[in-house]
Amino acid sequence: MAREEPTALERFINGVLPENPIYRQLLGMCPVLAVTSAMKPAMTMAGATAFVLICANIVISLMRSLLKPHLRILVFTLTIATFVTIADKFLAAYVYEMSKQLGPYVPLIIVNCLIISRCEICASKQSVGVAAADAVGMSLGFALALASIATVREILGSGMWFGLRVLPGSWPGWGIMVLPPGAFLSLGLLLGAAEWVSRKRARTNLWRTVRMLWSWRR
């Protein structure tokens, strides 16, 4: 029997936490490491990625019946590249400072595996509503993950959050946290924490099931 495709709500929820693109799927690591030195660039990147992902998913879903298997990746790439270029031009016109700070990382959204994987897994197979819900969920999950890493790095690195001082002025500022090694350290520790929480929850659920089976047997 063919496996039933997830509903819009399931797609949305999966994207936020259970299948979080960064903590569970380890996709889009390049922007995760490169733009999370502070919240502002991280959230600008999250916004640009969300725009591209939502638009690409909707457009691909709308034309899913026209896709030819051997040309589908070409169509995905063409669509994604178009929306990335629009996002890049928009940032250069309206958020110039962030556009300069993000530099080549905005055009690099084109090669973010998260977007092409959602086109392949969901948008090319399911309806527009489901594809849009999937894109919103994944975008939210991506933004939350970027925010968590950027929060750790910006606060420890400069004592600030979103450019506002949150630690006393006497905080020395761990310079390493805003540098590339800080990105790897933060990502590694947060990934470890997410894995630990997930395993703990799985163990709790396992014990609960065992206890339930045991009581049912008696």
């Binding site: 026209l66 896709l67 030819k68 169509v75 063409l78 669509t79």
Partner: peptide, 9 residues
């Protein structure tokens, strides 16, 4: 489809 999309985009 690729040709039409190329022109449209």
């Amino acid at each position: 489809l690729v040709i039409v999309l190329g022109l449209l985009y």
